[in-house]
Simulated assay, not measured.
Amino acid sequence: MAASADRRAAAAARHRLLPGGRGAGPMPWIIAIMMFLTILAAAAGLGIGAAVRAMSADLAGRASVQVVEADAQLRDRLAARVLSVLRGADGVRAATAVDPVALADQLRPWLGEDAVSGDLPVPALIDVSLSPGNAEAKVAHLRRLLTGLSPKLRIEPHAAFLLPLAGLLSALGWLAVGVVLLMTLATASVVVLAARGAHDSHRTTIDVLHLMGSTDVQIARLFQRRIGLDAMVGGALGFAFAVLVILLIGLRLAATGSELLGAVDLSWTGWLLLALLPVAGVGLATLAARWTVLRALGRAL
């Protein structure tokens, strides 16, 4: 009878440490908010990184040749000559003249109707795709070649125009990594505070468990189980809402029709990393709770 009473008392003590209703306390909701922000920051970092890599790969081997000639007839003849020379030059994979109509449509928002009326001289453009290899050396070779043809020819690598943008995107990607690390530290700090508060508010229950023969490790396991369940519920909620927001943002980016914004995409490895974050969050919360409670119990002795 005494043993049965001890077991009932221990069970009642454990129930006070592990109350029902996982969504009743604030802990799941706090972890859900932090996981939501962590997933969004991680997705932003992964998406920006993919955009920078795609942009670098696409622009590293491309350049534009400008035919700066005011006379339309001379400009057309010089452009045709340059196009022929480029197609036979070493290091050039392809050379294509940009349609003047398409170029005028792109200039219309800044130059108005003068861009398509013909009154305003617009340079002819030739899009050049370079063969794989040292792009800088190939551009320098083509610059020397074009300078010998005419002083009214200009060649500019595409990467030079978007180099500041690439630097900005890289900085934003590292900023997202920093936010993920800060949110991880914040989550661990919240768990530590919650575990300390739970330990202080259940000292009487802990004393009862000690009298029943429970060890510090067994008591710490109860706390880490409670906080682990809260972290699991909160992590699942935060992940679900973050995925919903990411999908909605992806639809809006696709609707813009921008090639640069369209490159902000997540691969299957990126989605896998995002899915592992809630799992890592549960593990972090469990370990932090265990460490905190064991340390507090060791000091109480």
Rank of each mutant, 00 (worst) to 15 (best):
T187W: 03
V192P: 03
S56D: 14
A51E: 08
A60E: 15
R7N: 06
A89F: 11
S170Q: 15
S201R: 15
S170Y: 13
F36E: 10
L276Y: 07
W110N: 07
A124L: 00
T204F: 01
P157M: 13
D230W: 07
S189Y: 14
G118W: 03
A70D: 06
D216V: 01
S117C: 03
A104P: 02
R299N: 01
D114F: 04
A115E: 05
L18R: 01
T184L: 07
A2N: 12
F239K: 08
L287R: 14
R14E: 11
L17V: 08
R93F: 10
E136A: 15
V139Y: 08
P19M: 07
L40E: 10
I48A: 04
L169I: 10
G61M: 06
V208E: 02
F241T: 14
L261T: 10
R295L: 03
R108M: 12
V98W: 02
A285M: 12
L40T: 13
S267V: 09
L297P: 00
E259H: 09
D114E: 03
G270L: 08
G197N: 03
I206C: 00
G112T: 12
L294V: 05
A9W: 04
L247E: 14
A160R: 15
R16C: 01
L172D: 06
S64R: 06
L46A: 10
G133F: 08
P121F: 07
P26E: 02
A2R: 15
S117W: 01
V82C: 12
D119H: 00
G281C: 09
R14A: 05
R14C: 06
D265P: 07
S267F: 09
A236I: 11
L253Y: 09
I30V: 15
